[in-house]
Design a protein around this nucleic acid. Structure first.
Lengths: 240, 240
DNA sequence: AACGTTACGTGTACGCTGTACACCTGTCAA
DNA sequence: TTGACAGGTGTACAGCGTACACGTAACGTT
């Protein structure tokens, strides 16, 4: 009897062996239906018909699990559309990202709680930067724009180019060069930042400036709407 | 010996009796120096020289503790300046809020993780709305502006006017009327929302519209900078 | 075919969390 | 004096992430 049960279980395991992909997929489903709080290693394992510690043979720890879940969501964002002016293209992409995040309501919170961005998030950012650059924005403007859009495109806020880990500029330069293969656009902007402000205020970028840049962009736009007596009823879109 | 110790402890307690204020203050200090993760009921109690359960005589649970900590931070935001045009006043206030949040790096994350805003946050929002209204913005524009600024002024995002709890519009109307004493400006905007869109799409406001409103405000501003060949080096400020 | 290695699921255990509940004790009003 | 009450204590429980030791089944090599 016990032997039968064990064989069955084994066959079940054979039929459906654990894998990072299956774990991540199940975790996302679990979070979708029960909220992120219902994703514990124990519940996840139970959902997979397995003992909690079994998960650790496939993922290092819970943080890695969360990172993986983020990547699942980010991978649902549509690729950039072709043949569009930069503004339309960026707009579409951001709305697609929003759609993905709205499908998984837990995702924004998890992304924001993470300290370092995952590869998929970096790839998304890199692609976004590429769209801006090829749209005619300068590297400088692109840099500030990424900060300004930060809160809009994904949860990630500032401190993207200020990992605060590598204080040595030499080290940072090496990191940028290493990045330039995988994330060429990102590297270009990062390099520019190190270049410019490294001489002025030190490594990283001026968060206060970035914040005020975005704030003034909004405030100036708002003032223009006020002067124009804008109303949401008589508008084809927020702006002309 | 044991008697002495007990007397000493009692005297200590008498000298420094527990109170919500002292608990909150200590919790904020603890979070400031060790991060929000180092604020557990046990560590907090230890810091106060008291047994964990003693805290529950003064605060209902940990959520209430976190709400209280938020209010401590929000209360550090400067009051609005007088005699300024709306844009300058709003700008100053938001920068002051940012300063407060930067002093307590854990605060943004905690605010964002909270589901319902605390009274202090509501008061801050109410005052902000008041500044916009008295600056000449229509109630309609003010409403959308609050959403657009959302991610900038504090952590709170959308779903402010969509508590999703009270589906009954009658109930919502009552809530608004109750609110109008404490948060008059907030109530004015909320009433307008219920009024307008209640007839069109149901209760609450159109999150998608709000999102695109803010997005387009930014994108249009960015396009203008691009055309003008804006650069962070040759700028007195982000916008003219 | 026998063997050692490797991959992977299991079971137990530890320290941490929030907090329910019963208990004691010092203070004050009647 | 007494009885209520406010407030600190102690114990206990369920849940969390995960370290560590232990099987056991599958596989490449001899």
């Amino acid at each position: 009897m016990e032997g039968d049960a064990r064989v069955e279980q084994t066959e079940g395991a054979r039929r459906n062996p654990l894998s990072p992909g299956r774990i991540l997929h199940t975790a996302v489903a679990l979070a979708d239906e029960g909220g992120i709080d219902s994703v514990s290693m124990r519940k996840l394992a139970q959902e997979l018909g397995v003992v909690p510690m079994a998960l650790y043979k496939h993922i290092a720890n819970k943080d890695e699990l969360l990172d993986g879940m983020i990547d699942v969501v980010v991978s649902e964002i549509d690729p950039p559309g072709a043949g569009l002016d930069w503004k339309t293209a960026v707009r579409q992409r951001i709305l697609s990202a929003r759609r993905a995040l709205l499908c998984h309501t837990w995702a924004s919170r998890v992304i924001e709680s993470r300290t370092t961005p995952t590869p998929a998030v970096l790839a998304y950012m890199d692609s976004m930067i590429g769209m801006l650059l090829s749209g005619g924005l300068s590297v400088d403007l692109t840099h500030h724009v990424m900060h300004a859009l930060g809160s809009r495109i994904l949860g990630f806020s500032q401190e993207l180019f200020t990992p605060s880990a590598s204080v040595d500029p030499r080290e940072a330069a090496t990191a940028v060069r290493a990045m330039s293969g995988t994330y060429p656009h990102l590297a270009k902007v990062a390099a520019r930042v190190d270049h410019d402000e490294g001489a002025v205020v030190g490594p990283g970028c001026d968060d206060q400036f970035e914040f005020e840049f975005a704030l003034d962009l909004l405030l100036d736009g708002i003032e223009a709407l006020r002067v124009r007596r804008w109303s949401s009823h008589s508008s084809q879109q927020a702006a002309p």
